[in-house]
Design a protein around this nucleic acid. Structure first.
Lengths: 123, 123
DNA sequence: CATCTATGTTGACATACATCGAAGCAGCGA
DNA sequence: TCGCTGCTTCGATGTATGTCAACATAGATG
């Protein structure tokens, strides 16, 4: 139902997600659209495997990690690739191919935006 | 999949959700168990309806809201109840019956913990 | 060009989840 | 006591999602 005829899922990495997404959750009720957009980011971290992948990249040296560094999250390689794609689509990670390997890195502004929505949530 | 060699942890279900769950995501890779537990909280906010419900409660006067205050999120009332239950199970909300109405309120420590996992890299 | 390694994509499948209507409970008031 | 209102639970259903094996693609290397 509702909407999303031409949902621009094509290139979210450009800017969209980084932008001033939403106010703190305690400030005012989110609109349907705000919730839709924000939920996509939280949902990306709502899977144990993705959460491990994300923290693996985030905590890796230089804030980036090669896929080859990831091999012990308990799922097959295609599944890893699938989850990394999801994290990228959510705007939380960006990827870059350097020769043979592909490196993923955290998108700090997006993570910070999520933190802001939660961080001042104690009134 | 089985590791769990003599982890000296207490019963997880008793007080699990509120406790200092995990370090910032940038500090070190999360373990499987940490990820499992944390993902449950993020997943709870990974649905647009739940996100609206949560921000509605969080932004409501006094940090709590009656279910009767919620009627315009676009889903039926049983569905609202279902989502509130999910949020409660994730430890993000608590509920209390006062006479005819049931009031939901934000659990600040849990939300703060989530914020710390994301936002400790910035002020 | 042939081939090997590193990632990504596709198709299939089982499970989880969001949603609704209907029924069940709990207070309140007549 | 009866009925009314607010909220939760139940059963059913369609859709989304996580997972894997098999295949496809991109660079490097011989």
């Amino acid at each position: 139902m509702s909407n999303t005829r031409a949902l621009p899922l094509l290139e979210p990495e450009v800017s969209e997600a980084v932008a001033p997404c939403c106010p703190p959750l305690t400030e005012r009720p989110l609109s349907a659209e705000e919730a839709e957009r924000t939920a996509r980011m939280f949902k990306a971290l709502g899977d144990p495997v993705r959460l491990r992948l994300f923290s693996l990249v985030a905590s890796h040296e230089g804030g980036e990690a090669c896929v080859c560094d990831i091999s012990d999250v308990g799922v097959s390689q295609p599944t890893v690739s699938h989850h990394l794609k999801k994290l990228k689509e959510a705007g939380l990670l960006s990827s870059e191919r350097r020769g043979t390997w592909v490196y993923y890195r955290v998108e700090p502004s997006v993570v910070a935006a999520m933190g802001q929505m939660l961080g001042s949530a104690m009134s």
